[in-house]
Design a protein around this nucleic acid. Structure first.
Lengths: 337, 337
DNA sequence: AATAGATTTGACAACGTTGACAACGGAAGG
DNA sequence: CCTTCCGTTGTCAACGTTGTCAAATCTATT
C-alpha cells in the first residue's frame, strides 16, 4: 500500500540499497548484470525516488520565479518556459508573486531561500532593476538571474538576460519610416515606467539617424491602458500624424478605437502599431502590427542559466545573454495615403 | 556561513533541540520562560525551519495545480488564489500545465505524486471532467478537488467546486429581458465546448420561463475568438436582434466591432454582453457588461479544501461547494430603442 | 602462484526534522 | 514521608536518500 522505497527495491533485487542508489543515479561502477536486475525490480515495484529526501541530502533542487504584476499574460508565458526547463532537468519550481512596492520583498525572499532550500532565483522587472535586492540575495548565496530590458547588461553582479526593446522600437519606427510615414506620434511616455523610456529612445534614434525632427507635441504622456490610449490619441490627432507608435498593445487598441471615433479609418488614414504581441493584438480590427517578445524562450533560457549556476560551483561560467525582438507585421499599418 | 539548524538554536539557548522543535511547532508543553528564550535565539540566529526535512518526516506539504490551456488569464488568477492560501498554511505549490489531449496525463501526474510527496491535486476543466483520471488519482490516494461548471456536483467521488454558469447565463439573459429586449442572439454555441452548452442552457431557460420563443436562427455556432465573433455577428445581424449574448468576452469584442462595421451603433442599436470579465472586457468601447467569475476566491477555496483533506484523515469532512457568479454591469447594454 | 591494481559492492553515518517514550522535578494527597 | 500525578524536558529512532570509506571480488602482471 505504501510507496516503495529504495530499500524495498534492494530487498527484491537481493543487493544493498546503496547499489540501487547507484543505479538510480546512473553511476558508472555497477556491473551490467546487477544494473539490469535492479532496473527490472524498479520497474516491477514502480519505484519513484523520493524527491524530498534527495533534496535534503544533496544540493537544493528548486528555483524560484519572482514576478510583480501577476496579471500580465507575459508572466504565464515565462512561467511555462521555466517549467518546461525545470522538468527536463528534474528541478522544481516555486512561484513567488510579490508586490514590488512593499519594503519586505527582500526579507520575504530571504525567508523563502532559507526555509525552502531554494538555490536559485529568477527576477523580472521591476524587481530585477533593484540592485539592492540583487546584492542582498547574492549575499545569502542564492544564484540570481535577472531579466531586464536594454541592449546591454547593466553590471556584472550576476548574469542577466537583456531584452533589447530599444532596438525593437527602432526597428518598428524604421518600418513605419520605410512605409513612407513622416509624422509619427508616440503614445505612452511615462517617466517612471522603465520600458516606456527605452521604447522612446529607440523611436528617437530611428528618427534622428535619418535627420528627421522629433516633434515634442507628438510625444504623449500616459499610462499603459486602453482608456489612456484613447485619451492620448485624442491629443495626438491634433498634430495630424499619419502613424501612431503605441508603447504597448493595449494603448494601440485604444488608439485604434479612438481614431475611428474621431473619423479616421485605420489603417487607411492613420497607421497604428503596438508592442508586446499580447492577445489584445488580435482582439482588435485590423489585427495589430506589433513587436513580439519570445517570453517562453527567454524564461527557459533564464532557468537553464540558474540551474547551471546551481550545479557548477563556478558562477562565472554562466554568461549574460541578449535577446532581440522581431516585428510581427499584421494589418494595422500601411503606406500613408 | 551555513544556515543555522534547530541544533544551533538549541545550543545557543542551552536546551535540547527537541524543545526548540516544540517551540517552533507551537506545542503547548513549554514553559513561558524557556519559550521566550528560545524565540530570542531563533530571532538572533535568524533561524528558518527547513521545509524539506519537515516534509520528509511528516505528511506531504505540497499540492499540485493542474490545468490545461495555459494561456488563459483565468489560470493565473486561480494560481494566485491557490498560492495565497498555501502561503498562509505553510504549504508549497507545484504547478503542472498539461495537454489534456495527451494520453499520459494520468501517468505524468502519478509520477509527480509518487516522487514529489504531493498530497493533493486541484483539477480544472477539461481535466476535471475526466472521471477516469479522477478515480485513477484517488486510487493512488491523492486528495483531489475538482473545479467544474454546473449547478450541482456531478458525483460523490471527491469534493467538487461547482461554478454555476448556467445560473449566471440565466441572470444575464434576464437582465437583457428586463431592459426590454425581445430578440436576443446567442453567439458561440459549440457542441464540444462544455461551457458553451451550459451558457446556452441558461439562456434558453430564461427565455422559456417567460414564455418567449427561442429562435434557432439567432443561435450561432462558432469558436471563442474575436474573429469568430465577427463572423457570427454578421450571421446574427441578419435576424435583426436588439441584443447579443456572447459566450465570452472575446466573442463580444468581435461582435462590438462587427456591429459597428455593419452600421449598427453599440449600444444604441444593438446591446452586446460578454461573459468572463476578462481583461478584454475593458479593452473595447463601450466597456462590456459581462459576468464575473471570482477565480481567485474559487481557487483559494479549492486549496483550502485540499489542505484540509490532507490534514484530517477523514476525507468526508470536506464538502463540495458551489459558487454563483455576478453580473458586472458596464456600458455595452442599454434599453432597446 | 603471488601480488598489485582496478572494479564492484556494502556498512554506516549523515542531512534536519518529528514522534514515541522515558526521565525529571515539584505539587498534591494520603 | 512516601506515593501519585502532571507539566516539562530530554533521549533516541526514524524518514529515504547520498557520501565516505572499507571490504570483497575480479583482472592483469610478474
Amino acid at each position: 500500500m505504501k510507496k516503495p522505497t529504495i530499500k524495498d527495491v534492494a530487498k527484491l533485487a537481493g543487493v544493498s540499497f546503496k547499489t540501487v542508489s547507484r543505479v538510480v543515479n546512473k553511476e558508472a561502477s555497477v556491473s551490467d548484470e546487477v544494473r539490469t536486475k535492479v532496473l527490472e525490480c524498479i520497474e516491477k515495484l514502480n519505484y519513484q525516488p523520493n524527491h524530498t529526501a534527495r533534496v535534503m541530502r544533496k544540493a537544493p533542487f528548486s528555483l524560484a520565479f519572482v514576478y510583480d504584476n501577476p496579471n500580465s499574460h507575459y508572466v504565464i508565458e515565462m512561467q511555462n518556459g521555466i517549467i518546461s526547463e525545470c522538468r527536463e532537468r528534474g528541478f522544481e519550481l516555486v512561484i513567488h508573486p510579490t508586490d514590488s512596492r512593499s519594503e519586505d520583498v527582500g526579507k520575504e525572499l530571504a525567508a523563502m531561500i532559507g526555509s525552502n532550500q531554494i538555490g536559485g532565483v529568477i527576477l523580472t522587472p521591476p524587481l530585477s532593476e533593484n540592485r539592492e535586492l540583487v546584492t542582498f540575495l547574492l549575499n545569502r548565496d542564492a544564484k540570481v538571474v535577472r531579466i531586464l530590458s536594454g541592449a546591454e547588461a547593466p553590471d556584472t553582479l550576476a548574469p542577466v538576460i537583456h531584452v533589447d526593446d530599444v532596438g525593437a522600437a527602432r526597428k518598428m519606427t524604421d518600418y513605419l519610416l520605410d512605409l513612407g510615414h513622416k509624422k509619427i506620434a508616440f503614445l505612452g511616455y511615462h517617466a517612471s515606467h522603465e520600458s516606456s523610456l527605452g521604447r522612446l529612445e529607440g523611436f528617437r534614434t530611428a528618427l534622428e539617424s535619418r535627420g528627421l525632427p522629433v516633434d515634442k507635441n507628438l510625444i504623449i504622456d500616459g499610462e499603459f491602458t486602453f482608456d489612456s490610449g484613447m485619451a492620448m490619441t485624442r491629443e495626438a490627432l491634433k498634430g495630424k500624424p499619419t502613424a501612431i507608435f503605441a508603447c504597448n498593445d493595449e494603448i494601440a487598441a485604444g488608439a485604434v478605437f479612438q481614431s475611428r471615433l474621431s473619423g479616421f479609418n485605420v489603417p487607411e488614414d492613420v497607421s497604428i502599431v503596438g508592442f508586446e504581441n499580447s492577445p489584445f493584438s488580435v482582439q482588435t480590427w485590423p489585427h495589430l502590427t506589433t513587436v513580439n517578445q519570445p517570453n517562453f524562450d527567454i524564461a527557459a533560457c533564464a532557468a537553464a542559466m540558474v540551474i547551471k549556476m546551481m550545479q557548477e560551483k563556478d558562477v562565472h561560467s554562466v554568461e549574460s545573454k541578449g535577446f532581440s525582438l522581431n516585428l510581427v507585421v499584421r494589418d494595422s499599418a500601411i503606406k500613408p495615403a
